[in-house]
Design a protein around this nucleic acid. Sequence first.
DNA 1: CGGTATCCCAAGCGATACTG
DNA 2: CAGTATCGCTTGGGATACCG
Lengths: 143, 143
Amino acid sequence: MRAEDLRRTRTNVRANVRNVPGPCAHWNDEDADFIREVLDLVGDKWSVLIIGTLADHPVRYSDLADAIPGISQRMLTLTLKHLQRTGLVSRTSYPEVPPRVEYALTELGRSLLSTVLALAAWSADHHGEIRRHQTEYDSADET
Amino acid sequence: MRAEDLRRTRTNVRANVRNVPGPCAHWNDEDADFIREVLDLVGDKWSVLIIGTLADHPVRYSDLADAIPGISQRMLTLTLKHLQRTGLVSRTSYPEVPPRVEYALTELGRSLLSTVLALAAWSADHHGEIRRHQTEYDSADET
DNA sequence: CGGTATCCCAAGCGATACTG
DNA sequence: CAGTATCGCTTGGGATACCG
């Protein structure tokens, strides 16, 4: 795959948010751009799972595949490349037979992990409340 | 729109992550489910922008549309409904002419906002570093 | 073992037109 | 003003087969 392809995905989406008023109280439009980039990276189907799996120690490709059931080879490779390009994950290949490749969180990746853990904590904390609201909302219009 | 439709989207995706070993060091599979639900909700194109815009005070529908340039009516309505169903946003309609509808963050929504702000801060802090990694990565294979 | 390449369906989302 | 309905493009991502 070309680097060009990797650049196209997830990046040029924000083009249409540029050069506009900027109404949010907590961040300006440029900040909004940044956070959207991070959300695009981390908000996808597999990134967080991979980051979580790499949290404590390097993991090799096939072990990642086993550790994250349901992921396809395609998405594992693709997501790893995105994370690598962003500098969150490092790739080390050992010239052995059979070949061995290990992925690990970089310092940057670890710093993001702590933020993600905060989100995970929020999720766990308020999961029950969210469920309540959902069922309430759903039952409202079926009556 | 039926509640059924709202339930289908973003929810049943996690079906294939169920009942599996659970390899992550920082959360079990159930937690992973929760965080994926939150990421599905917040990781989309407009949710964070809306939450940020509602941060300080209630905003009416048309003002939201103006404040978030580029958003379509369809996505504004749809995203608001999702946020409302989750209990992050409240909707109040005033029976006047012309009609007025105000959206506001709930207590739950405010609690999420602080977590999101942490992510925004991380994004702003490490944006430069991320850019560096990206250009480095991209220039690597064009040589 | 650690990937790539291709095919294809479904979800996400914008544009446009219409309504109470 | 505050939505809803429909259409059609574009992206995400699974399945499968193949390669160094």
